[in-house]
Design a protein around this nucleic acid. Structure first.
Lengths: 357, 357
DNA sequence: TATTAGCACTCATGTTTGTTGAGTGCTAAT
DNA sequence: ATTAGCACTCAACAAACATGAGTGCTAATA
């Protein structure tokens, strides 16, 4: 068996323990680790001097190295390799993480999502700035149909279709068979179809709860959970989400050679809430909006410009797309590009949702 | 009409010219611009002293500012605003850019693409490192069917379907009607269906060219172009592409607090060729591959670790996914996550392409 | 013999001080 | 009204210096 780049001399138990402690400490802190900090943890009951001697050995053997004479040690590639091969303990994925992943994979990607993603990709590719695109807000979407399909196992797929053609589907776990699912769906449709999602509030849901309880014999707790889920799904139809692309571009511009500022900006753009409030709500009736520096609402954007344009379904403005870049951006070019992309989106959305009418 | 934050005093022609020159210079260089550099360009025929006086005026009026006493001037927000409202000239999008955009929008997003994107999204979200995922390489895909659909206008859609179910579609511009398209497609199918894309080489294409030339009366130059396009499309079936997600994460780690290094890394990861050579080709038969620091092939990754796992269709390894992170990454966790995601992909691909057989 | 306390030594980091040069504002000449 | 000339300012860079975390080594201790 070929061990990659590993010393043949074996390590005794103590050396292994120390090496492991050092590597794990370093993984956590990214600072060279000194003998004192290992000794302090007192897991081995050794003084710093002893650790020091062992560390010197480990360095000689190639597992550790010193960035400079008076610093602590950091693991060498060989050290990491030994850790990965022999020291590291297996990690068990949490059930929640597993479930989250499965759910994410099962979620179907809608055509709309693809359009929005493509738009953000194109915007960032063509302008070389950070692109932000909001998903369309179809206000007061009328519910057209609700479907509940038993998929086998303990999973059921909930599908909500609006008059505008939006399809939301989610997986939920619930042990029912086809016929119960059908009757459940029938009740939901009878009570909810034709209503806008604004009209479907909590009271409405409670009414339905009673009816279903009396018709179908479901566990009350389970029922509440399911209805809650349905409620959230319906509510989420109009929840706008913002796609961001090419955040890394901000690093290209010298105004962000201050790493601290760059990091702050990155975490600002990581937060959906922030994004929604800069691009989510439609303010003013202008098609093209330009916010330069302090004209922006948020302090974090005081050094940036935000240029956005609206996109529409028919006559109604339903979303925005834009770029965030340095104040010294190429405004003319950006506006031309955004305008062009937006009118393309308009066309595509029209074909998708209005042509049939 | 409300002008946002703009001084009411009007600017004379000369001041406008100077302001414009300063702003455009600054947009290009991101350096405070001095009187000399404007004077040097000699477009206005004024000495630096004169410019200096005008600049002082413009500063007083609020259009410019000085980062510090002995620096050049930079535009203020009001300066940019005035530029955007009054000085800037319209930008005309190039025809190529328009076409590129249209093409991009017309390209259909395949299911496969969605899976891969989702995988990269999940990988980066769960590990918080940069994710890299290669698209599957279905070697020697047999061509099942080629379609040529006249879309009206001067566009034709070329669709190539492989036995494995891969669908490649592209738009090309070509003025032919339905019946010619159908006959064209018929010839293509007769000659190419059943062959693997490895077997379709340049000579093969030339043979077909002759046949089509004698059957259909097409412009020879146009025909060559089209066949070339078809050839490229077929060839591209097996071209693996690499999706990258969450590049920005590298900035979170202190090992990249050197901006220069970070930028270098970013541009390394922007290059498909690099990506393909680190994750594209399958090397070794190990399922999990770990490259620590200098174990990597590329100098740019000497400070990183690259952990990848294979994913497969049936028994055959057809792609990889992995993360790039600092050497002090949480290997155990990363491996667990990657493994889990990969086996999910396996399952999904199996259902998608093998279940039918 | 293995461990540890003590101490001199090293060197990255942070701070202070000095130097340089781009760019200004002002004045006087054109 | 424009411009040449000159003194002045101040960020950016460099050199000199202090600080302290962490080491290696030696001698004392269990």
């Amino acid at each position: 068996m070929k061990e990659r780049g590993e010393c043949h001399m074996d390590l005794n138990e103590r050396k292994r323990k120390i090496l492991q402690a050092i590597i794990e400490e370093y993984i956590g802190t990214a600072e060279p680790v000194g003998s004192r900090s290992i000794s302090k943890k007192n897991e081995l009951g050794l003084s710093s001097a002893t650790i020091r001697n062992e560390m010197a050995d480990l360095e000689e053997m190639g597992y550790l190295m010193q960035p400079h004479t008076s610093a602590g040690r950091i693991p060498s590639d060989i050290g990491y390799r030994f850790y990965v091969n022999s020291l590291m303990k297996r990690y068990q994925m949490s059930v929640e993480a597993m479930e989250r992943m499965q759910l994410e994979f099962q979620k179907k990607v809608t055509q709309l999502e693809n359009i929005i993603k493509k738009a953000s990709m194109l915007t960032s590719a063509m302008t070389d700035y950070t692109a932000v695109v909001s998903t369309p807000e179809f206000h007061q979407s009328q519910i057209k149909k609700i479907d509940l399909v038993a998929l086998g196992g303990e999973t059921v797929m909930l599908i909500v279709i609006t008059k505008d053609g939006i399809v939301k589907n989610r997986i939920l776990s619930m042990a029912i068979n086809d016929s119960v699912a059908a009757r459940f769906a029938e009740i939901l449709n009878r009570r909810l179809a034709g209503l806008t999602n604004d009209e479907i509030n909590f009271d409405k849901i409670r009414e339905i709860q009673d009816e279903i309880q009396s018709e179908l014999n479901l566990h009350p707790r389970a029922l509440v959970e399911i209805l809650d889920f349905i409620y959230k799904t319906i509510e989420s139809i109009d929840e706008t989400e913002v796609y961001v692309d090419n955040v890394k571009s901000i690093l290209k511009y010298p105004e962000y050679s201050d790493l601290g500022k760059a990091r702050e900006m990155l975490s600002f753009l990581d937060n959906q809430k922030n994004l929604r409030s800069i691009i989510g709500k439609k303010d003013g009736d202008e098609h093209v909006s330009i916010r330069i520096g302090r004209e922006n609402e948020f302090e974090q954007l005081y050094d940036c410009s935000l240029v956005t344009v609206n996109y529409s379904l028919g006559e109604k403005v339903i979303g925005k797309l834009g770029v965030i870049g340095p104040k010294r951006m190429n405004y003319a070019k950006v506006i031309a590009f955004l305008d062009c992309i937006a009118s393309h989106i308009d066309k595509i959305l029209y074909e998708l949702y209005m042509e049939g009418e």
